[in-house]
Design a protein around this nucleic acid. Sequence first.
DNA 1: TGGTGCATGTAAGGATTTTGACATACGCTG
DNA 2: CAGCGTATGTCAAAATCCTTACATGCACCA
Lengths: 149, 149
Amino acid sequence: MHQGDTVGPLDTAVGYVLKEAASALRGAMDAALRPLGLTVPQYSCLELLGQRPGLSNADLARGTFVTRQSMNVVLQGLEARGLVTRPAEAPQGRQLPAELTAAGYDHLRAASRAVQAVQVRMVAGLSAARQQELLETLTACARNLTETT
Amino acid sequence: MHQGDTVGPLDTAVGYVLKEAASALRGAMDAALRPLGLTVPQYSCLELLGQRPGLSNADLARGTFVTRQSMNVVLQGLEARGLVTRPAEAPQGRQLPAELTAAGYDHLRAASRAVQAVQVRMVAGLSAARQQELLETLTACARNLTETT
DNA sequence: TGGTGCATGTAAGGATTTTGACATACGCTG
DNA sequence: CAGCGTATGTCAAAATCCTTACATGCACCA
């Protein structure tokens, strides 16, 4: 076996620090959203809907990296709380376009501020150029792994 | 509300692409490890133990970003399969130092190669300098969020 | 026109993970 | 030495998530 075939020290493995950062972010977001009565998946759903109203359940699931079933229970919860509305019947096909209510937008504004504060704290001390590079590098990494070729 | 107080377009949010990359990595690792009969948490445990034998359950939990309870069931499973051994009684205190068996090391070697292949694919097209910078940037982000100050 | 493939929404079940709680063991400090 | 705080292992219960499955709707093509 050649040297470098195995993972090596964890602190030097990209996958490890990626998991570490994602875990830390998840925890920080969870703590920031708890006072608002929202979980991370719920916030993700609101944020996505706020930016792109009319998204279907499957669209939201893909956008938040969970299954359709998981997103469905999130949507049902948000619907029961009056933050999201869905038509009783599909306008065309089977897709039910979801939209935020006024209360949904209110919750989203407060939650978005809290999450933004977390993000600001996360990238504290990083130059704008470095933040941009991080963005591009992570996007490239994700694309490398999701390509089917 | 000032501009920039909210999250903004998702593709430009560091937290979003971080989650996206972590999700893609998780999925790719899962697919790579499935033929070997290992889950991602199980592999994480083996890798950690291979590099630092004698780690306790709580140590492993911290190292893999899960709770002690979750790591405990992982350890029990690996122990039942003969990949990990733990003493019946704690040498000192309550910590039970875990170690890999010979079979455990065998599984780890194969799994580590598979995971390394995934990591190589993930960072394909990135220069060594850029990979190093990604490593440092993510570490800094994680540290920013876990600081208690 | 009928069939095939694919995407969607939904329900039921199981598996995994976390939360809450408790007893124990060590270190520190008065 | 006694008390307090912290860390560990473990149990039980709850929550969360995914896997499997099925019925429906649309697009495509023979």
